[in-house]
């Protein structure tokens, strides 16, 4: 039985690469595709980012930005919001597919849980990348964790 088990494992060649959603959920700069069928204008990605002291110091703020990597479509832009407590901010990538991120926005909420949202202005598939980094008061990167709550 042990042999069988080992053989099953040894025969494995490579792990399946989980694209889009998984990569969105587990890096500080990552991407995914919203509304892949192009029919859901209200499509929203919703995640919780936890900021903590990873040895670089307590978090002062969360800085985020978004980049729409799909070709331009009139009236179709990607937005990103960040919320913590009574503070919130919004940013939009004004030019799709140009390789540039939106203006960076920050919310100053210290350590703790920030809510981030990614959405768009109309129906249509949008591939995007997000950047999210918990920063200290001296702009040093510090502990950043994420949990994806919704992607639909």
């Amino acid at each position: 039985m042990c042999k069988i088990y080992s053989k099953q494992f040894i025969s494995m060649t490579a792990f399946t690469t989980l694209v889009s959603l998984a990569s969105f959920s587990h890096a500080h700069d990552a991407g995914a595709t919203m509304d892949p069928d192009g029919t859901v204008a209200k499509f929203t990605g919703y995640a919780s980012v936890t900021c903590f002291d990873d040895g670089n110091g307590a978090a002062d703020h969360l800085a985020v930005s978004v980049k729409d990597t799909s070709p331009p479509v009139p009236g179709l832009l990607v937005n990103m919001q960040v919320i913590k407590g009574s503070r919130a901010a919004n940013t939009t990538d004004p030019v799709s597919g140009d390789g540039s991120f939106s203006p960076e926005i920050t919310v100053q909420g210290g350590n703790g849980v920030y809510q981030i949202l990614v959405n768009k202005t109309n129906a249509g598939a949008r591939s995007f990348q997000v950047s999210y980094h918990c920063m200290t008061s001296t702009n040093a990167h510090t502990g950043t964790d994420i949990t994806v709550n919704q992607f639909e």
Partner: peptide
């Protein structure tokens, strides 16, 4: 609670 260091 949330006392993570060096990532977790």
């Amino acid at each position: 609670e949330n006392n993570a260091t060096h990532g977790s």
